[in-house]
């Protein structure tokens, strides 16, 4: 499988990187110490490859982005937030299966 092309975001580049993308961006808030985040990461890598061009996958390590976490009211890990044209359009707390994620994405693509 091709290597997944995934953005890594921090407080410093969060806004500008999301604005710079043409495709919707699905941001995964995660941390080292979160078990369920590990399973989700595998699924998101698959989606990044299969849906390249349709959606961009980005990752935020919450330990490295405290302001972004507060701004977007992340209260649970993992949490995914979908951005379209720079605006958050869907917030998905908790790890989900691939079918569910693709279904949510398809509503916005």
């Amino acid at each position: 499988m091709a290597d997944a092309d995934i953005l890594t975001l921090t407080d410093d580049n969060f806004g500008s990187s999301i604005d710079a993308e043409n495709a919707p961006v699905l941001v995964d808030f995660w941390a080292d110490w979160c078990g369920p985040c590990k399973g989700l990461a595998v699924i998101l890598e698959e989606i990044a490859v299969e849906q390249a061009g349709n959606v961009k996958i980005a990752k935020v390590n919450v330990d490295e982005a405290p302001s972004t976490v507060i701004e977007h009211e992340v209260l649970s890990l993992p949490t995914m937030i979908l951005f379209k044209e720079g605006e958050p359009v869907a917030k998905i707390p908790g790890a989900q299966g691939k079918d569910t994620i693709l279904e949510i994405l398809s509503e916005f693509m």
Binding site: G35, P36, G39, V42, G94, A95, Q96, K98
Partner: peptide
């Protein structure tokens, strides 16, 4: 499948 309950790859110890 990934989930935030114990019903996920790796099972309960992932939590």
């Amino acid at each position: 499948e990934p989930s935030s309950t114990s019903d996920q790859p790796g099972g309960q110890l992932m939590l």
